[in-house]
């Protein structure tokens, strides 16, 4: 009655129509059939198994096999951390240097004479002598006999000048001397070093009033140090009965072990008279 081709076309149309009707019905009111549950129950264990295998493999990869790259990354991070810490230390050093230089600059402004900043580059090889080498010399205008100070007080004087460096005799050296006054009572004496981190105010008369805690400043009479620079604080006064003078121990205002930057005061009368060496 119908050709085979016509039957196939009709069957196709019917199938598509039924399919569309079922889809339309299912879209409007989803129903759970027993077949679906069976399918889930059948497939899910395999899914679960596969999931755990993949998860385990992935975990093993990330947690153990991938550790080599983690170790490398850790190494790199440690290096970065070290570099950062080094950077912080350098930054701190710069901050401290900046602060010291600011203090020095402030002090330089307060001085009446021009001054040249210098850095200490070497110290005396012997424990008995207290001299240091600074990085400024004749080319920078330095001359023998020029006073050297820091923002805290008197440091010493130039005793030898070369082209680009100079030797500086610290006031704590036994060969050093500076005319000084006790600020409170104007008692006069000579500050002498001991080759230790302390000085003595020598030739102070018994009658003079000097007490622990008094400030000792330069008198300006020696022609080297300008008047009024702080040398240190009186730490102890020894009254030796038979002696004509008191023994006055001074703690210098400058910590010579930590001293790094200094100011050389140019143009003092004695240094001009002494000339270059």
């Amino acid at each position: 009655m119908f050709s085979k081709k016509t039957v196939l076309i009709l069957a196709g149309i019917l199938l598509i129509s039924v399919n569309l009707i079922l889809l339309a019905v299912a879209t409007r009111r989803p129903v759970a059939s027993g077949l679906g549950r069976t399918a889930i129950a059948f497939v899910a264990p395999f899914q679960e198994l596969t999931h755990y295998v993949v998860k385990t493999v992935r975990d093993v990869w990330w947690r153990y096999l991938f550790l080599s790259s983690v170790a490398e990354e850790n190494q790199r991070l440690l290096q970065d951390l070290g570099a950062a810490q080094q950077h912080i230390v350098q930054q701190r050093e710069l901050e401290l240097e900046n602060q010291r230089l600011r203090d020095l600059l402030e002090f330089k402004r307060s001085l009446q004479s021009p001054a040249v900043p210098a850095e200490i580059i070497g110290r005396d090889p012997s424990a008995w002598f207290k001299t240091v080498i600074i990085d400024k010399g004749h080319a920078d205008g330095l001359r023998r006999g020029m006073p050297v100070v820091s923002s805290l007080g008197v440091v010493g004087q130039i005793i030898e000048v070369s082209g680009r460096q100079s030797r500086l005799l610290l006031i704590i050296d036994r060969n050093s001397g500076a005319d000084a006054l006790v600020q409170r009572t104007r008692a006069r004496g000579i500050v002498k070093g001991t080759s230790q981190d302390e000085c003595y105010l020598d030739y102070v008369l018994h009658a003079d009033d000097v007490r622990a805690g008094d400030l000792v400043v330069t008198s300006g009479y020696d022609g080297i140090y300008p008047k009024g620079l702080l040398i240190g604080t009186v730490e102890a006064v020894d009254f030796k009965g038979g002696d004509f003078f008191k023994e006055v121990q001074i703690r210098p205002a400058v910590d010579f072990d930590k001293l790094e930057e200094v100011l050389v005061i140019l143009g003092t009368p004695l240094s001009e008279a002494m000339g270059p060496r």
Partner: peptide, 22 residues
Amino acid sequence: NALFVAALGAGASGTVGFPAGL
């Protein structure tokens, strides 16, 4: 050190004594 001490002692002046402790 003995030589240095002798040199320091020779150049000493004033009332400050020699730093024997040092």
